[in-house]
Design a protein around this nucleic acid. Structure first.
Lengths: 234, 234
DNA sequence: ATGTAATTGTGTAGTAGCTACACAATTGAT
DNA sequence: ATCAATTGTGTAGCTACTACACAATTACAT
């Protein structure tokens, strides 16, 4: 027997998908070829299906667009202003995702008419999506200062300077190379592979990978991963 | 024209209402005299109405139960497991509120069959409400370490030892009296009233009030109000 | 009024962590 | 081999937190 005299509404999910291209943070945005607001940019989103958990729906949406599962995904806020969707009353549960930009499924992205766009060149988005991006970035900043999470944005093997560039991008700041590397190594989160990076930009950095058990452990509690980076949220 | 082929569901809100009685944190809980789960304890909740913002609905729910508006209220998570409500698929947007236990409207509380219950003696709650309380406390702990928020739980005028007891309750720990008072006074958040507390417990503490503009300013950014209190979340 | 116990406020040494920078080691190219 | 670019280690200065000694204040009993 259902509840009576109650109002059922649409529940959407919107995903702020962050990627890192070695220089700055990027967003995976969709140029809409469907109504409403056709032709404009928006976040990737969708509706919650019958018999589907919120978490599962968020994963589904990210998977549809990138072909990737197992991404870092965190719910951060639910947006419920009355007129946020002009078509019909809809509340939207927002998640941000961190994905490795290199592992993406280019076909999936093309078929959704999506592109990676530098956060610094973000166009105006539809509805309240601009605010969602802003809040997602705030959340990512606080989270990454307390727990090691940014690594999800890098390839499996990476150099310390690459990791530093990532943190500089997240916080839009410059960090001291020497202190950064010392700090990161002291966490025991990284294990050297012995290999060197023969790739494009860096010349001599040793490649590291995550020490998976320690990584999982430190994601659980608040360890103050880089507490000095906590800064104004707004 | 509405969206088609989409699934509309119930949106509920649940409020974790924290109060402080001078010793420990308390929760305002409802002993249900209505179905489902009549006779069991639950959080105060309600459904989102047509034409009502999420924020407004949360304020309405807290106001109905306590007679108080203008409380500190923060949305912290949306719970959407398929079977979390056995009656019908419902997602619930959870907020926690900080209220001054002394200002409450006793009639409103009685008429809802609600009581203040010490967090340490919390009974088992219905549905997923236990987890909501757990997550709310985690969130409050992180929040109170980064920003001054706990003051909402105290009377307008309070002594520093009272404030210390509050922080000790939130973090379930003991703090050094001398360092605590120094730290708090250094924030410029408090202004002495000159008056003394002739009340019940404390004997000689000067009464302080909030320096409102500074309080509002420091709630906005992350200033690391008491960063040493950040601890494991789980 | 005066003394005593309880409580509150100030000083400070020790420690840990962050910042800034000097200097050494390593790598890749000529 | 030599040099330039890059990366790794040492360390002094600063700030903030901790722990505790000691001084000041208050409440209350006599």
């Amino acid at each position: 027997m259902p509840y009576i005299h109650t109002h059922r509404i649409l529940v959407a999910l919107d995903c702020i998908i962050f990627g890192f291209d070695g220089e700055g943070l990027n967003l995976l945005l969709v140029k809409r070829n469907f109504e409403p607001e056709i032709g404009k940019w928006s976040l990737m989103g969708g509706f919650l299906n019958e018999g589907e958990n919120l978490e599962d729906a968020a994963h589904r949406i990210v998977y549809d667009l990138t072909g990737l599962d197992n991404n870092y995904l965190e719910q951060f806020q639910t947006f419920g202003a009355i007129n946020r969707d002009p078509v019909e009353r809809t509340i939207s549960v927002a998640y941000y995702a961190l994905v490795n930009i290199e592992d993406q499924d280019l076909n999936a992205i093309r078929s959704h008419n999506a592109s990676w766009i530098s956060l610094s060149k973000k166009p105006k988005l539809i509805f309240d999506h601009d605010r969602m991006v802003e809040e997602a970035l705030n959340r990512l900043r606080t989270k990454a200062a307390l727990n090691p999470v940014g690594f999800e944005l890098l390839p499996v093997k990476f150099t310390i300077p690459q990791l530093q560039k990532l943190y500089e991008a997240i916080y839009d700041t410059k960090l001291d190379r020497r202190n950064f590397s010392r700090k990161v190594l002291s966490t025991k989160l990284l294990v050297g592979t012995g290999e060197k990076d023969m790739g494009s930009q860096t010349k001599k950095g040793q490649l590291y990978t995550l020490n998976a058990p320690e990584y999982i452990r430190q994601q659980k509690g608040n360890f103050g991963f880089m507490p000095e980076l906590i800064m104004a949220e707004d």
